[in-house]
Write a protein that binds this DNA or RNA. Structure first.
Length: 489
RNA sequence: GGUCCUGUGGCCGAGUGGUUAGGCUCAGCUCUGCAAAAGCUGCUACAGCGGUUCAAAUCCGCUCGGGACCUCCA
């Protein structure tokens, strides 16, 4: 039985889909106004594993992950412009061109991380009509009002009949007490009935390039409405899982719940799943804090905090080694450790496929199997699942050394278990530079045999030279008992 | 200021009141021409103080430290 932590209740609950075997899964995607950094990778990777696991459990999953390409207000110097447009002015490009550029970069990075593409990846800019329609309904129902060409959601009105703050644990009266004091002045604050009201539609100034006609003004949609409109369109008014980063809890997800509930008379999502942040030196990695490390910088090793490049799979493993609800502190040492660990795990997979069965089994595969799925079923506890996998890594090495054995049946069970968990569910792949792989192997076998001739002739000077030069070329030789193997650095 | 989370061995990180999490690093040994890999062994921690309990890293209280949100954010 799969159990998931639901932010809405603060408890781990049994996962029971609204309409089994169908599962609707919505994840807040990126705002495409910059290159993705380390923190941006966590959500997609965590939810990729969740997606894969749900598929493994034979659910029919529709996974929607949006692209936000409109609407976010900036609150620094250029008030009222949206972020996409701001970049457009700097770079003298068409706004959509920029959105496309960063969307492509996002995809390229996630592909490297072996993150499956979602079933549907809607863009906010492609759903203006749906958003306007939803705003219309909210006005008709009395939950929203127009003010000077903009439309705001009436939080107080909503709070009369609903609990605004139940997701994020906020109390409206406290929000109101705090409003106005330590808060920064948002543009259009005077247009609101109440400081906590949030924008559904913003009137655009003439200089604002990204704008669309609406019944109220030429403008653009507020931030929260896009997710509500798109999730309702593709998953229905009520769906199973809504996910995102913990930093989106308030106001984004809280407001989504308010809008959707007010509009559809039903809560949008049954389970809310929030992953925690990636920190650096204990502090959240964020574009605004200027402490972000881009994914491309990790993959290329081009960052002052990084000793070297780390592969996408290393990063994926690093992220899965922590539970998704804990903060994860990033450092070069931590990545280095992840790299070694991953290597050991993947090596054991290769070894496993070459093992010969024995007459008896020294290890209990079914207990292993049970432990791994117990961990995954308990709120997707990937670190514990990995710990159990490493138990088996020890077994595999022992068998390989001839110090233990597994029967034919157990061996093949173990093989399929590793295949299923490591490759299919955790999405960890054997890494090799695929290009030229086909001719590299025979080439290296030739070099190895030449080196072995030198070794047999006790010409160690020559054999060491060959090994050293190959290492410089990126190939590491390992002299085993039976034969010499190599790995690509 | 308000709400909430958190503090685990050299590092990263799991932990349901009673059992060795796991990974990495380090030291020793086995194997080996050397190196690497692999195996074995060792290093056994829970911020501090107090309480509950036969038993607490785990529950409660206080103190100190770190963080998130309250504003765009994965």
């Amino acid at each position: 039985m799969l159990r998931v932590y639901n932010t809405l209740t603060g408890e781990i609950e049994n996962f029971i889909p609204i309409n089994s075997p169908f599962v609707g899964l919505y994840l807040c995607g990126p705002t495409v106004y910059g290159y993705p950094h380390l923190g941006h990778a966590r959500g997609p990777i965590i939810f990729d594993v969740i997606y894969r696991y749900l598929l493994h459990l034979n659910y029919k999953v529709r996974f929607v992950r949006n692209i936000t390409d409109v609407g976010h207000l900036v609150n620094d110097a250029d008030e009222g412009e949206d972020k996409i447009q701001k970049r457009a002015k700097i770079e003298q490009l068409e706004p959509m061109e920029i959105a496309q550029h960063y969307t492509d970069a996002y995809h390229a990075n996630l592909d490297k991380l072996n993150v499956k593409r979602p079933s549907i990846e809607p863009r906010a800019s492609g759903h203006i009509i749906e958003q306007i329609e939803m705003i219309n309904q909210l006005i008709q129902k009395g939950f929203a009002y127009e003010s000077n060409g903009s439309v705001y959601f009436d939080v107080l009105k909503y709070a009369e009949t609903h609990d605004y703050g139940k997701l994020s644990g906020r109390i409206l009266s406290e929000l109101m007490a705090g409003a106005g004091e330590a808060r920064r002045e948002l543009e259009g604050q005077s247009e609101k009935l109440n400081a906590n009201d949030f924008a559904l539609w913003k009137k655009a100034s003439d200089s604002h390039i990204m704008q669309w006609p609406s019944p109220w003004s030429n403008g653009f949609p507020g931030w929260h409405i896009e997710c509500s409109a798109m999730s309702a369109k593709y998953l229905g008014k009520s769906f199973d899982i809504h996910g995102g980063g913990m930093d989106l809890l308030f106001p984004h997800h809280e407001s989504e719940i308010a809008q959707s509930t007010a509009c559809h008379n039903v809560a949008p999502a049954k389970y809310w799943i929030h992953h925690n942040m990636v920190t650096i030196n204990g502090q959240k990695m964020a574009k605004s804090l200027n402490n972000g490390i881009l994914l491309s910088e990790v993959f290329e090793g081009k960052h002052e905090l990084l000793e070297k490049a780390y592969s996408p799979m290393t990063l994926r493993f690093f992220i899965l080694q922590a539970h998704y609800r804990s903060t994860l502190d990033f450092s070069n040492d931590a990545l280095k450790a992840a790299e070694k660990g991953l290597q050991r795990l993947m090596n054991s997979l290769t070894i496993l496929n070459k093992l010969e069965p024995g007459n008896q089994s020294d290890f209990n595969i079914s207990v292993l199997n049970e432990n791994i799925f117990k961990a995954l079923n308990e709120d997707f506890n990937t670190p514990i699942a990995l710990a159990h996998l490493f138990e088996a890594v020890g077994w595999i090495n022992k068998i390989n050394d001839g110090n233990a054995a597994l029967t034919k049946v157990d061996l093949s069970t173990l093989k399929s278990l590793f295949q299923l968990v490591v490759i299919d569910i955790l999405g960890l792949l054997e890494e090799q530079s695929s290009e030229g792989q086909n001719f590299i192997d025979p080439l290296l076998q030739l070099i190895i045999s030449l080196r072995n001739e030198a070794k047999d002739a006790k010409d160690f000077k020559k054999s060491d030279e060959i090994r050293q030069k190959l290492l410089l070329a990126g190939f590491e030789l390992k002299d085993g008992k039976e034969c010499t193997t190599y790995s690509i650095k």
